[in-house]
């Protein structure tokens, strides 16, 4: 049984003269929650954008579920960007219709339940919502899909601790257990408890990729502590 969901071989992405990802090789299996950890500018967002087809690699091969990035992989990837990506004139119900139209794995009932839990009525306009609610409704849409791969780019940056808990709980209770969740963040202490594996990125290179249990056993410290050591300044 082929259990490898994401595979990157010699994956490189350069913007003009800046190398964002430098010859990355990795394989990520199914059914895991993976933290993509690294400071700003380490290549986290670039890697996620390559996976969801928003960027084309400069060289190397990247596959999801054994296929090159294209419409087939896009239909099994549920992507939450680090910004608002829905038109603000949409109503909540328009948004659900949109997702249901384009993604066959979208579960409308689940979405309705999540919106109800958030106190959002189907006829509420996105425009009138607060920034936090907009972020939550986007997350609700993304997590209502039964996707093979969830890509969450900085889902907890810039929200208060209560919202952070809500977001993590939403992810944990709703993701497709056969699928994999990749969460990019630099706020590790908040997220450590949910992670199975951690990828440490630095200047476009993978400096460590291991399970969280292994890190704790071998290093005798938490992922957060390891992160602080790896990315310490001027030591």
């Amino acid at each position: 049984m082929n259990n490898i969901l994401v595979s990157a071989r010699s994956l490189t992405k350069t913007y003009q003269h800046i190398t964002a990802l430098n010859n990355i090789n990795l394989e990520i299996g199914s059914g895991k929650i993976v933290g993509l950890l690294g400071p700003n500018g380490s290549g986290k967002t670039t890697f996620i954008k390559l996976l969801c087809g928003l960027l084309q690699p400069t060289s190397g091969v990247l596959t999801v579920d054994g296929k090159n990035i294209g419409t087939q992989t896009k239909s099994v990837i549920s992507y939450l960007p680090d910004r608002m990506f829905i038109a603000d004139w949409f109503k909540a119900c328009d948004l659900m219709e949109f997702f249901a139209d384009f993604y066959s794995d979208f579960d409308k009932n689940k979405a309705m339940e999540m919106l109800a839990a958030l106190g959002i009525a189907p006829n509420d306009k996105i425009k009138t919502m607060s920034k936090g609610t907009k972020e939550k409704i986007q997350l609700a849409m993304i997590m209502s899909r039964k996707a093979k791969l969830y890509l969450l780019d900085e889902p907890i940056a810039g929200v208060d601790p209560a919202a952070r808990d809500f977001i993590l709980n939403t992810i944990l209770t709703n993701y497709n257990e056969e699928g994999t969740v990749i969460i990019s963040t630099h706020l590790i202490s908040d997220i450590e408890r949910v992670l199975d594996e951690a990828i440490f990125l630095q200047n476009g290179n993978i400096v460590r990729y291991d399970t969280v249990d292994n890190i704790r056993e071998q290093e005798g410290k938490s992922v957060d502590q390891l992160f602080r050591e790896i990315f310490a300044y001027g030591m």
Binding site: K74, I77, P81, F85
Partner: peptide, 17 residues
């Protein structure tokens, strides 16, 4: 705005060419 700004993040990740 619909393709080259923030909404592009939604449109270009749809399973369409």
């Amino acid at each position: 705005k619909g393709l080259l700004c923030d909404e592009g993040y939604l449109m270009f990740t749809l399973p369409v060419k």
